[in-house]
């Protein structure tokens, strides 16, 4: 049985169920690296180019961990675009090359190019090429891919119930996950999934807010139609997939009467964030908005202070009976 490694990082949080099902259905044994921890971060910082963002650095740590597991392949897709006319951050395009340049004890990489910006023809061809590493039966590959897409959709449905993508994946794998606790404040939380849902990178932001008595609203739980409709109100179309989703989510949350405040988690050194964060900050008019920037520092004090102050502000304002700012300008 061939062993395929999948790093527990970056687009793991959006597509792990898909790739795991695909490779398992083709008879492979899928191994993912452990959750991000200090070791992954330390290794990643040592290996990665200095100018990249924190999630990419952490990804290097995950690949390094997988290198020690006697694998036949490591799956490192070259992500260019996952939907028509939209793109993923250019750093993702270079990930397989950066990894090859940085690590020398690598097993063979499966570096399929995922680019459906114009059509999905090349993706289909690449899927068949990857599948043929495991089987000669073309129909089995097609069936596996269809099944994989179904499983991924199912996992997204779980996330609509208010779970983070990390929790949804755990649920999908059959693990026990506590129901998201409910509280007296409704906070919308936005950020790139690979930083927001990685508890180590985000310093457990979502769980912390829940412990402070907040209901956390995540983009995955919102109606995708509403998100796209709001995102379309920006004069120039945002062509980053995740960026557009965040702009749309922020504007949609801004209009919803039940949301008390919005928090945006940005990564220091992230190109798209520097623009998207700015756009959101300017466009959110009715809600309290806070942008948090994270980087390598492990001191949690600054983050905790800001979260506490944000919740305090919302609660004290309500205590005075002022309620929210008017929900519709």
């Amino acid at each position: 049985m061939k062993r395929v490694g999948i790093p527990h990082s970056l687009f793991y949080y959006y597509y792990y169920p898909l790739w795991k099902t695909f490779f398992s259905d083709l008879g492979a044994n899928v191994i993912s690296s452990s959750e991000s921890n200090r070791l992954t971060l330390d290794q990643g910082i040592k290996l990665a180019v200095d100018e990249t963002c924190l999630p990419i650095k952490v990804y290097f740590g995950h690949v390094q961990e997988l290198c020690q597991q006697h694998l036949d392949y490591i799956f490192i897709p070259r992500l260019v675009s996952v939907e028509p006319k939209s793109y993923i951050c250019p750093k993702f395009m270079g990930v397989p090359d950066m990894i090859r340049a940085a690590l020398d004890n690598l097993p063979p990489l499966i570096d399929i190019t995922i680019d459906v910006s114009k059509s999905d023809r090349s993706l289909k061809r690449d899927i068949m090429r990857v599948g043929s590493l495991f089987t000669n039966d073309d129909n089995q590959i097609k069936r596996a891919y269809t099944h994989a897409c179904q499983e991924n959709r199912f996992c997204r449905l779980l996330a609509r119930e208010g779970y983070t993508m990390a929790e949804a994946i755990s649920l999908w794998e059959g693990e026990q996950v506590n129901n998201p606790a409910s509280g007296d404040l409704n906070i919308g939380v936005l950020g790139h999934g690979y930083s927001l849902y990685d508890p180590y990178i985000s310093m457990n932001l979502v769980e912390r807010l829940r412990k402070m008595g907040c209901n956390v609203f995540l983009p995955e739980a919102l109606d995708i139609g509403c998100i796209e409709r709001e995102a379309a109100t920006i004069p120039k179309r945002v062509f980053w997939t995740l960026g557009r989703k965040m702009v749309g989510s922020a504007l949609y949350m801004d209009k919803r009467a039940d949301i008390d405040g919005i928090i945006y988690l940005a990564c220091f050194g992230c190109g798209p964030d520097s623009l998207i964060g700015e756009i959101i900050e300017n466009k959110v008019k009715n809600k309290s908005f806070m942008m948090l920037t994270i980087d390598e520092h492990s001191g949690e004090g600054g983050l905790v202070t800001r979260l506490e102050a944000f919740c305090d502000m919302l609660r004290r304002r309500r205590m005075r009976g002022e309620g929210n700012l008017p929900a519709y300008g």
Partner: peptide, 11 residues
């Protein structure tokens, strides 16, 4: 007398 908005320096 109630905080409406605040900001702190980043990193």
């Amino acid at each position: 007398g109630i905080v409406q908005d605040f900001a702190m320096n980043t990193v």
